[in-house]
Amino acid sequence: MKLRLAFEKTGEMKYIGHLDLRRFFQKVFRRSGVDMRYSEGYSPHMLLSFAMPLSVGMESVGEILDLEVNSLPDEEITALLNRNSVQGIRIREAVKLPDNAKNAMSLVSAADYRIRRKSGQREPWQDLIRTFFWEAEELLVTKKTKKSETVLNMKDLVYSFCEDRGELALRISSGSEKNVKPELFLTAFFERAGISCFPAEWRILRESLLTGNREKGFVSLLSLGEPL
């Protein structure tokens, strides 16, 4: 049976790297006595996969983890897991997926972020966003990987960008196909808008991971399952 969990990674836990987080969850499941499914072989491992790694240092309230179990525990699973977790990693919700569901990793196509200045200092965001982003013809950034450099037009890859209650809310292309880190976009945007930007001044929070596309719209990965 396939399950999908949404969880938070906040506070000091933002310093825990992706592989360490995977190991942490394996241990949470084991401590909780969840009847996990395993791969075959000499060193069987639990069948679990994350939708998308979170950069070390970034907090999130909308991480997604898929797993396979043989049976459901007697106790409500989020409560059970939270009892065996630590502060900063909290399971928010669990859903059951159809057996033929694709894994979250292959589905993610966008992510929502909220961005604020740690100092609380505000800017006339609405105007800046309109002038320097929506009304601009293009906003090009260069994405460097080990092998290549690609120039991306952010106008194609940012699906929504606005001010909301004093913070910036951003929906941006993510996942295996066209992944854009929010920092990359923000740096380019701030530069264009003439705002000084030291990465350490900003707090970026990942809010949720989504699937879908611009034409048909985006939905949360959790909505593909049924409540338990």
């Binding site: 000091e12 310093y15 790297g17 360490d20 241990k27 630590v86 502060q87 900063g88």
Partner: peptide, 12 residues
């Protein structure tokens, strides 16, 4: 490197 070395919030 590895800030988790210094956190002291491990389980148990």
């Amino acid at each position: 490197d590895h800030p988790a070395r210094y956190l002291g919030n491990e389980l148990n």
